[in-house]
Design a binder for these strands. Structure first.
Lengths: 148, 148
DNA sequence: AGATCTTTGTCAAATTATTTGACAAAGATG
DNA sequence: CATCTTTGTCAAATAATTTGACAAAGATCT
């Protein structure tokens, strides 16, 4: 199922971006990133000396969070602390995508459905979102019995 | 709100990856990617001749989908056709993330909540997911009246 | 007030990564 | 057999990045 593949792409820990891209997307300069890495606040993957540094999506989230706190006026060390305390909202988001988004199916031209699964306190009800050109709308429906 | 920033990072059309990264993540070789671009099946951003080609996340999804169909035995042209007919599940997914994920909040250490909004056919009920180390669970609750 | 630390920017030499045109090759199709 | 599709490989040229070094501004400490 393609939906599963897409979700794996998003959460793929091997998906990585270059330092320049990280800087462009987050607004944190490459020299800041270099310094933060030297301080041990963030990490990158580098197969050998002089080779490119690559950053994971989770690191991207973390850098964006640290930047958020720096913009609020905190010192770098405090921003890093607060980011750590938040336990990486990026991971929450990733777990949600991986475990809660069950399937993505296509219904027709420019129309699809995202299946979110059953309610924990009402397992007879399944939640799904309809996505089309107007946006998205959330619905519930009774769980269909398995055909096999 | 940080949750919004994270969602913007995922759906950010300016987030881009290099051709080598696209090849690594999708399993499609760089010479295939070059050929597909020459054929007009996919596109990249390139600020000038001889500069790096950069691919958007949506293009990443599309390449992955085309690869999926090639692996099923279709010719390249047919795979591209089928991908076009699917209207890019990646866009469905993106719209879902952008419009349906309302907020991501943190409740405590390694625990958070993803707010999905109200049911269209029952606007008094709000759906949310609790994310923790066990995974995720979906719940509904009455909509709280606004304080402001 | 001076010393020290934090944080970020800039530079240049060295190295890696990518682009590009060209060509080969295998298999499919006409 | 000719032509097209699709992909791989090569090498020269160019871009992108790394790295160590150093400067600078502001905060903090003594």
């Amino acid at each position: 199922m393609l939906g599963k593949q897409f979700r794996q792409l998003i959460t793929n820990e091997h998906l990585r971006i270059s330092v320049t891209e990280l800087a462009n997307v987050t607004g944190v300069s490459t020299s800041q990133i270099r310094y933060w890495e030297r301080k041990g606040y963030i990490s990158s993957k580098q197969s050998d000396k002089n080779k490119n540094h690559y950053f994971s999506f989770l690191t991207l989230f973390r850098v964006a969070t640290i930047k958020h706190y720096l913009d609020q006026g905190f010192t770098l060390a405090t921003a890093v602390d607060k980011e750590r305390q938040r336990q990486e909202l990026g991971k929450v988001f990733r777990t949600f995508i991986t475990d809660q988004v069950k399937a993505i199916t296509q219904l027709g031209p420019k129309k699809g459905e995202v299946i979110l699964g059953t309610l924990t306190d009402d397992p007879e009800k399944e939640i799904y979102a309809v996505v089309d050109q107007k946006g998205t709308r959330l619905y519930s429906r009774p769980v269909k019995p398995d055909r096999h």
